[in-house]
Design a protein around this nucleic acid. Structure first.
Length: 475
RNA sequence: GCCCCCAUGGUGUAGCGGUUAGCACGCCAGCCUUUCACGCUGGUAGCGAGGGUUCGAUUCCCUCUGGGGGUACCA
């Protein structure tokens, strides 16, 4: 069956079902690069009516704690990337891996060797730096079945990685060392385990980060030694930080968990990640999950590494925030406030919260922005020295006193009525609008940046508004 | 050192031999306006360099330069 780079119309009208997998090693946080790999796999599975499997590469027992595994699952759930079946733990396949090692040994496709890193270096010093280590008839070759690591015999020739994103990459086998596929104690190593697991799971497409590109020929060699078919590959370019260096914690949010805590919405993160390294002829930027599933094409993924730049994600997040509608956004924000220790401040104030969200939504781009902007409605004015100095000086206090007089007898006390009354006051006094509005804003919020003043006053109600004005006047 | 990948504005991308090089974020300006935003309008800015191939290269080939990945009895 011919495969390889799919042509421009290869995915029309519909793809054959793809069975794909995401195989993270459970280090705790789900790195955004990993999240993107998971997303692309998920999009392909859902778009082709196939399956998305989750396999935990837990052979490193140190890091593979139940807590770490749970964290990864949690992050995937939050993103809405549901997997098919139960998560598979790689360690549960160890028996099969060992059996394959024994078979390779029995067929002389692998051998035992006690060669150390120094032995390999010495070999290269003698044969050339670009010559892979061959231990088959090297002094370190071990004939005792209990002694030495297991190395795979790399045959002559070349190994071609067929990649949906970058076409064929040819690796000359001479450059490859005979890879160690199992430790001296017989325990399987990564490249062996992965190849076997993907084979056994019937994975049709392996989509993973480019950091695995040079592992792929080794895995292909294992499959070849087993006489098995190989899957199709796609290696995604890596994600870099704004400075072009590998993305890490010091660049700010580098994991899904951090993005969640920073107040981003899963849909926005998914949309952003999908567009980071992929784009099609359509110029749309805000693309729904369903649309993404329909349109995503692995062959159109970019070959160059992309920088993770939070600015666009912020913008996109604002779009999704406002797209939720006031009730949806209120629920989202309530959840975030509960999780960040502000649950008490909003308890029992549902009406005010909804109003606060309504008048704040166009001014925030993350869920986390809400409290900084509108928290004053619940907890009283914040303390911004500069704002007070500028807007509550002698001259402005006089205007504020007039404002108090106007608002004191206002009924009803609504955004509209406050608006009309204050504008009338501005007209009477013959001053600039902001000289009247800003002092009130600072009296209510304690700072010069807030939702609209009329809206804020109405949200607080007349009594609270007057109390805050009095406090400002008295200070 | 050795093996491998990549290269369109500051960022993410469209382009698949002939385009005024398109879109989005950012940035700047204007409008709106009670601050900040949202929204709208306009603007700034790009094919890494050098060789080829071709009537014609951002597009194809080579070299260089610059990024990146790998190089474990880790995953």
């Amino acid at each position: 069956m011919p495969r390889g780079r799919s042509g421009p119309d290869a995915r029309c009208p519909s793809l054959p079902p793809m069975r794909v997998r995401f195989a993270p090693s459970p280090t705790g946080l789900l790195h955004v690069g990993g999240a993107r790999a998971a997303l692309y796999n998920w999009l392909l599975a859902r778009g082709s009516g196939g399956e998305f499997l989750l396999r935990i590469e837990d052979t490193d027992r140190e890091r593979s704690t139940p807590e770490n595994i749970e964290q990864i699952l949690d992050a995937l759930r939050w993103l809405g990337l549901d997997w098919d079946g139960e998560p598979i733990l790689q360690t549960t396949h160890e028996e099969r891996h060992r059996a394959v090692v024994q078979q390779l040994l029995a067929e002389d496709r692998a051998y035992r060797s006690t060669a150390t890193a120094d032995d390999v270096r010495a070999y290269k010093a003698e044969h050339g730096a670009d010559k892979g280590f061959r231990g088959g008839d090297h002094p370190t070759r071990s004939h005792d079945p209990e002694v030495g690591a297991v190395r795979l015999r790399v045959p002559e020739g070349q190994t071609v990685v067929r990649d949906l994103i970058r076409g064929d990459t040819t690796f000359q086998n001479v450059h490859q060392d005979d890879p160690v596929v199992a430790r001296a104690d017989g325990s399987p190593l990564y490249n062996l385990a992965v190849a076997i697991d993907d084979l056994d799971a019937g994975i049709t497409h392996v989509i993973r980060g480019e950091d695995h590109l040079s592992n792929t020929p080794k895995q292909l060699l294992v499959l070849q030694a087993m006489g098995a078919e190989s899957p199709v590959y796609a290696h995604l370019p890596l994600l870099h930080g704004p400075d072009g260096k590998k993305l890490s914690k010091r660049h700010g949010a580098a994991s899904v968990q951090e993005l969640r805590d920073a107040g981003y919405l899963p849909d926005a993160v998914v949309n952003y990640l999908a567009l980071l390294g992929w784009g099609d002829a359509d110029d749309e930027t805000v693309i729904s999950r369903e649309e993404l599933v329909r349109r995503f094409d692995i062959a159109r993924v970019s070959k160059n590494p992309a920088r993770f730049d939070e600015q666009k994600l912020k913008w996109l997040n604002g779009k999704y925030l406002r797209g939720q509608g006031v009730d949806g956004l209120t629920a989202t924000i309530r959840g975030h406030l509960d999780a960040t220790g502000h649950g008490e401040a909003i308890a029992g104030r549902d009406e005010l919260l909804r109003t606060a969200v309504e008048i704040s939504q166009e001014k925030i781009s993350t869920v986390d922005d809400f409290w900084a902007l509108a928290g004053f409605l619940f907890t009283g004015p914040v303390d911004d020295e500069k704002a007070r100095a500028k807007w509550l000086d002698e001259g402005h206090r006089e205007h504020l006193a007039a404002v108090r007089g106007t608002l004191a007898g206002l009924d009803p006390f609504t955004t509209e009525s406050v608006d009309a009354a204050l504008r009338a006051l501005v007209g009477e006094r013959g001053v600039k609008a902001k000289d009247v509005f800003q002092p009130l804003r600072v009296a209510l919020a304690g700072t010069a940046v807030s939702p609209g003043v009329f809206e804020s006053a109405a949200a607080l109600g007349r009594d609270e508004t007057l109390a805050r004005v009095d406090a400002a006047l008295a200070a």
